[in-house]
Amino acid sequence: MTNWTDIGALEDIPERGARVVKTHIGCVAVFRTIDNEVFAIDDACPHKGGPLSEGIVHGRSVTCPLHNMVLRLDTGLAQGADTGAVNTYPIRVEGGRILLDTAKLRRAQVA
């Protein structure tokens, strides 16, 4: 099942920045890159739970604000010598609106 839910406009998120969406499985961080791509991942670093939405966004990666772990926005995988991963969620932009597949959030809760 797919359930695309409108969560806001692309320009609500600063370029190379992020905003948070509150969900029943916790906060999801929604990122916007320099190339205007949008990604959704858990807003908690696998290292010590840092709020990834507050990190510096570069290319398709974000650096956690607490201890500088670097995570890929598209795969959710930690980069470099670090290991770990966060969940990624299907997200897309249609006509300037950001759509999040909330069905995936439900499945994640069941699993």
Binding site: G8, R19, V20, V21, K22, T23, H24, I98, T102, L105
Partner: peptide
């Protein structure tokens, strides 16, 4: 937050 989906869920 950009959106709050907790109610919808």
């Amino acid at each position: 937050p950009l959106a709050d989906l907790t109610l919808e869920a």
